[in-house]
């Protein structure tokens, strides 16, 4: 197998809680939140890796680490075999061109006082990708057409556009540098469903046209199921299950994945009363001992309460971090 385009290896990111006076006098130093804890993800060129989880599970932190907006506490982000952390200044500039990000909120991710032209031109300018103003103009027109807008739109301001159109502008900005890898953090969560389908179709079209590789993050399982080739399920900073999309949704192994799938409201189940998952996601400041899911898990035993399961292959294409599955109990 060829080397993956993206390799997140043993990635962790810890945040120290308030460095105020309290922490200085407290025994044992500052408390640490393990927002991302030993995450391994490999993504092949042209593939879409979907990352799902509830709020606070660390999926957006993974996104920020993957594009280099944040440095990992441990582990490495390798893009095309180059470690982002140890890359020299020149290499890093070249890598930045090849990695781009689309954010969730099409309202806050744009400068409201800039015209669309400036917004899309910013990466081109910063990375010095256009040799003349005329070339930049041509490129902006081309990008706007590509995402289904009109070249005349470049003279307008963000407030003149709807949420869906703004997300198209975000995508045009991300594509301006001809990237190979796009990190999309909840790109359609702020949009209405009819607009969501337009954006998802557009992203698939662009992926086919430019051979793009996606890290696609969402809390919406149906969207992930539609977009992703492979899926990772995150819970409290860890990946608890990773599998090809079709397998994950047809034969989920981890009890958390099963419960998550069980709770998704479904158009086809009219009048259905589901058994909701009891309990809530624990506070990441005080995560439970052992398996972080054990307080909500119907299959938890003593081992689950004490020992943290590591992620292992189940022999059928799924990686799962669960003692029950590994012992054959579930």
């Amino acid at each position: 197998m060829t080397a993956p385009l993206i390799d997140l290896a043993g990635l962790s990111r810890h945040f120290a809680l308030s460095s105020g006076l309290n922490t200085r006098f407290r025994k044992g130093g500052a408390k640490v939140v393990r927002a991302v804890d030993s995450v391994d993800i490999e993504i092949a060129r042209g593939e879409t890796f979907g990352l799902v989880g509830e709020s606070g599970c660390g999926k957006s932190t993974v996104a920020r680490l993957a594009v280099g907006l944040m440095r990992p506490t441990e582990g490495a982000v390798r893009f095309d075999r180059v470690d982002l952390a140890s890359a020299g200044r020149r290499d890093l500039a070249a890598l930045r061109r090849r990695i781009q990000m689309v954010f969730q909120d099409p309202y806050s991710s744009m400068n409201a006082r800039w015209r669309i032209r400036e917004i899309i031109a910013e990466p081109l300018r910063t990375l010095n990708l256009c040799s003349s103003p005329a070339e930049m103009d041509r490129r902006i027109d081309e990008l706007l057409t590509l995402v289904g807008l009109s070249p005349a739109d470049k003279r307008k301001y963000p407030h003149e556009f709807s949420g869906g159109q703004r997300q198209r502008i975000s995508i045009a900005r991300a594509l301006s540098t001809n990237p190979e890898f796009l990190v999309c953090d909840e790109p359609t969560s702020a949009l209405d469903v009819s607009v969501q389908s337009q954006i998802l179709n557009l992203m698939k079209d662009l992926q086919a046209e430019f051979d793009l590789t996606f890290l696609f993050i969402s809390h919406n399982l149906a969207v992930i199921s539609h977009m992703a080739d492979r899926v990772g399920v995150m819970y409290l900073g860890r990946i608890v299950e990773q599998a090809p999309a079709q397998r994950l949704f047809s034969a989920p192994r981890h009890p958390y994945t099963k419960l998550l799938l069980e709770t998704v409201p479904d158009l086809n189940r009219i009048g259905y009363t589901r058994k909701p998952m009891s309990g809530e996601v624990p506070n990441p400041i005080n995560p439970p001992s052992g398996c972080p899911f054990h307080p909500r898990c119907a299959f938890a035993n003593d081992r689950c309460k004490q020992e943290r399961p590591s992620i292992r292959a189940d022999g059928q294409g799924t990686l799962v971090a669960c003692h029950g599955v590994q012992e054959g109990r579930i």
């Binding site: 869906g164 969207v223 799938l261």
Partner: peptide
């Protein structure tokens, strides 16, 4: 009808979602 067809579902095999062009 367009709204219903534009909603993705888990496990479906459609490659593209139905889209209502334009916006409200």
């Amino acid at each position: 009808a367009g709204l219903m067809a534009s909603i993705p579902a888990i496990g479906e095999t459609r490659d593209r979602l139905y889209q209502i062009d334009g916006s409200m």
